[in-house]
Design a protein around this nucleic acid. Structure first.
Lengths: 149, 149
DNA sequence: TCATTTAGTTTGTCACACAAACTATAATAG
DNA sequence: CTATTATAGTTTGTGTGACAAACTAAATGA
């Protein structure tokens, strides 16, 4: 195996290409987020809220985080006016978390930039190759074991 | 565009598949790292050191971090005995950063597990499809603009 | 009604990232 | 060959993000 964590000049192995591709996309999300003052976890948060109004609990599950992490995440987003806690109609202990107008604008702008950048990135491929890639990646995504050991 | 930040059940768009694939790999690195008490940034650090003895400066560039972040990163790794600072022979201000035996063992074990998991993930594809994927991903990697705006 | 879950917060701890100010050495200009 | 400037790295201060354990208040249910 060649070192998968540093760019070598050519001829990547399968694993190298998977890792480096992942970092490439991840770094792009990072930088695009930074332009809008959003971290990756905040992008994911707002992305989830785009079409959902989950409880804190459900957010924790969606994001794979501890509930105590969600408190802080929502606190900061709420302080910035991106999100609001709405007391749950059927459970006075809980909240529903909802995007504000500002939050919606921000995530829409962010997603637009992400789509643009990633689409440009995929311009290196032909149309046929792009759907090839989509199909191969999708198959790995849906067959992947939720890593355990 | 469908929401790229939450798994939908099927028919991913190109951008969705890129983002989700990236998260899938990233999460795997995270969890595998956690088994060995390594963060992703530490995995990258040790990975770089596998075949290099860079200065702090050069590490900052490799990792795309501020030099002050490197100080802390190396401090923690050194405290754990994974890495050592060696005074640079030609510049008494600087250091070379070097893997210790323990550090080398750890990154080798980590990389082995990463290779294993990602290889399994790619088992969803045939041999021909795997090289397809490698080639497509590699082309995107090497043609990617270092995102600017 | 009393005991137990459940939802979320608080507190404390740590990693990571940055920027600005700082120290010490190196390099360069006069 | 000194005086200035640049460079390498650390320190300090700030903020985000993550976790675990202890806690509060509401809901459930025996």
């Amino acid at each position: 195996m060649t070192n998968p964590f540093t760019p070598s000049e050519d001829g990547l192995s399968l694993v190298d290409s998977m890792v480096q591709f992942s970092f490439l996309v991840h770094n792009a999300l990072n930088r695009i987020g930074a332009e809008l003052d959003l971290s990756i976890i905040q992008i994911r948060l707002l992305g989830i809220l785009r079409d959902r109004e989950p409880t804190m609990q459900q957010l924790a599950q969606h994001l794979g985080l501890d509930k105590s992490s969600i408190t802080g995440l929502i606190d900061r987003a709420e302080r910035r006016g991106l999100v609001e806690r709405v007391v749950s109609p059927h459970d006075k202990r809980g909240f529903l978390v909802r995007l504000t107008k500002l939050g919606r604008q921000l995530i829409e702008e962010g997603e637009a930039r992400i789509v643009q950048y990633l689409t440009e990135m995929a311009d290196a491929l032909s149309e046929a190759e792009r759907s090839q890639f989509t199909s191969l990646a999708t198959r790995m995504i849906f067959s992947a074991q939720p890593y355990s050991r």
